[in-house]
Computed example of a mutant assay.
Amino acid sequence: MSTPKIVLTELTRVQLAESLAELGIDSRAIKAVWNGVYVRGLTDFSQMDTLARKTQAKLAEHFTLARPTISRELISTDGTRKWLLEWTDGQRVESVFIPETDRGALCISSQIGCTLSCSFCHTGTMRLARNLTAAEIVAQVLNARDRLQEWGRKRTECLCTNLVLMGMGEPLFNYDHVARALRIIMDGDGIGISRRRIMLSTAGVVPMIERVGRELGVNLAISLHAVRDDLRNELVPLNKKYPISELLRACREYPAASNARRITFEYVMLKDLNDSDADARELVRLLQGIHAKVNLIPWNPWPGAAYQTSTPERIQAFARNIGEGGFSSAVRATRGEDIMAACGQLKSEAENLPPSLLQLQR
């Protein structure tokens, strides 16, 4: 039986160097391979024209550069794109690109499904199938650059400038693979997305938060959504294990936080549930002593959900209270709602969407 090929995008640069050395490949090939995969977007070793043919053949014998299959691509009326990617075991995951005028954010997933069961989140209705590997996390970035035709452009010309781990799954329940993937993505000689342009969102896996700041130094977002433990226990059941007081203590101690790099607290606005002036004032009190800003998210509906979105007037009043309390707040614009690509709507199961939205079908 032949040995399975190594997925090259699973390896950091150091790991790649070790693997090439074991195969007797000259260390000078590392730069050509890394550049070929992460700067030129190549998917075939024979395209790496600075390598000798024998080296190309040996690489092809031991490694694969295969991309996931794109099962479906949906493009919203506002330009948001959602990709349903399928892996070799048949499992599927979604990632979303949200464009702005001169930049764009790619929202990627870290797990197939989710164990958090947050009651307001569509992804939370899925069972966890498995963690994504580092290569599968990196592949979401490579796929976006494929589809946006960004290979060969200067970084200043690319629209895929920011990365947010806010897709399917809880990143800190898959930390080792997420960390390896981010080290590959942040490598300055490759994809080169700066840690300052990467945001990792967690529902509050308290023991892992300090490690994220110390080892990765990326921006942190906390899915808070309530100011009382009883309500947060309902909305974010992980709160039963790591209550608000413990979560906020970890945020105060987050190594990568500063006045210039504040922790983002995500707060979904649910009508008559967590959107009162009293809730806003309590949020201000809770955030004292933290380099923080608040991101208010109008709840995005999905079939069968029991919640309603706060009115625009109530959201604005909530935001004013936050501002008067000394914290910056922003109301997140809903993007991609017509293709179920908005915050909290990702789910990899087939959806009944209008044929006009189906841009690519296998």
Rank of each mutant, 00 (worst) to 15 (best):
R285T: 14
A341N: 04
S201L: 10
R81N: 00
R332L: 11
A60E: 13
R103V: 04
R53T: 13
V218I: 14
A292P: 08
P354R: 04
S27L: 13
C114M: 01
R362L: 14
D275K: 04
E266P: 09
I137D: 06
S329G: 04
A134T: 01
R232I: 00
A341T: 08
T50R: 15
Q316Y: 03
L358E: 13
W302A: 10
T115E: 11
S329H: 07
V284K: 06
A330S: 15
W299R: 05
T156M: 09
D189I: 00
E22F: 05
P243Y: 08
A305R: 08
S356M: 10
F97D: 06
I244N: 00
V33L: 12
A221K: 11
G90M: 11
E150N: 01
G325A: 06
L216C: 11
I30Q: 03
A305C: 15
I297A: 12
L353R: 07
L235N: 04
E73V: 05
R180L: 08
V212P: 03
E349H: 13
A221F: 08
G167Q: 08
T123W: 05
Q359A: 12
R13L: 03
I209T: 05
Q345K: 02
A17L: 01
E246H: 11
V33W: 02
G41W: 01
V39F: 00
C160Q: 08
S276K: 01
E246Q: 15
H122I: 00
S117W: 06
K271R: 15
G323D: 10
A57L: 11
R197A: 10
A305K: 03
A32H: 15
T3R: 14
S276D: 00
R155P: 04
R153T: 07
R252I: 03
R130M: 04
R28I: 14
M48P: 03
S19P: 00
I322Y: 09
F318T: 00
Q361H: 15
R130W: 02
V206L: 04
I222K: 08
G204H: 01
S71C: 14
V37I: 14
D78Q: 09
A350S: 13
W34A: 01
I108L: 12
L286H: 11
P298Y: 06
F97A: 06
A32Y: 10
V7R: 13
G217F: 02
T69S: 15
